[in-house]
């Protein structure tokens, strides 16, 4: 099991090395990165990222939906690996909020417990297509709406893109901030759990 997982991760890492430089340098980067902006559509399972200023947008795509947590954990793991490869130590998760969002901004607590990461605050945005529907739909966790509302079935997803914006950082981790993630800790926690989305 271990050897196979290692092989798979090695291949994934090689794929990243090959794909990322091309994807990371768009010909004409946009001035801003609105929540609906994504890198060009990519093949299922391919991870992509794009830099804008100090922010990096990470996207993972797939056609075989296995579960929300599985995909989001894979994205978090890739974020941590990217930060480590960038010689940074930790990253901030950037929440793109819009009017009407019902989920409150998590507040840093300097007197409270300190953490290396809290994955419940790694809340990427989803775009997906359901079987029989030509339209892409968007789900933002900050909206407060349930992941799948109105009786829709997540198992009918035939295409998805999950994206997150992060800012890689160095120096001491802001361990009182729920949106701060120590790269080595996230990576180590997830490395034996994640599989590449298909």
């Amino acid at each position: 099991m271990t050897a196979r997982v290692h092989l798979r991760r090695s291949l994934a890492a090689m794929l990243l090395v090959v794909c990322v430089p091309a994807l990371a340098q768009p010909a004409s980067p946009p001035a801003t990165m609105p929540a609906s902006s994504h890198p060009a559509p990519s093949a299922p399972g391919v991870f992509a990222l794009r830099k804008q200023g100090n922010t990096t947008r990470l996207v993972v795509t797939g056609t075989n939906f296995t579960g929300r947590e599985a995909v989001e954990h894979y994205l978090a793991w890739r974020a941590a690996e990217h930060v480590t490869a960038s010689k940074a130590r930790w990253f901030s998760f950037v929440e793109r909020r819009i009017a009407g969002d019902k989920v409150l901004t998590p507040k840093p607590d300097a007197e409270g417990q300190r953490y290396s990461f809290r994955l419940e605050y790694f809340r990427p945005t989803w775009r997906y297509k359901l079987a029989g529907s030509p339209d892409w739909k968007t789900w933002r966790p900050l909206s407060g709406a349930p992941f799948f509302a109105l009786g829709l079935d997540a198992k009918t997803i035939i295409n998805y893109e999950v994206s997150a914006d992060i800012i890689p950082r160095n120096g001491m981790l802001a361990d009182y901030d729920p949106l701060a993630f120590e790269a080595v800790a996230v990576s180590h926690y997830l490395i034996n759990q994640v599989t590449t989305p298909r």
Partner: peptide, 24 residues
């Protein structure tokens, strides 16, 4: 840990960070 067969004193990274009350 994330699976029932993982001894988490030896593999503490297999459990999420539960937080720690530090000196402030």
């Amino acid at each position: 840990g994330f699976r029932p067969d993982i001894e988490t004193y030896i593999n503490p990274f297999a459990a999420p960070d539960p937080g720690f009350q530090q000196v402030t």
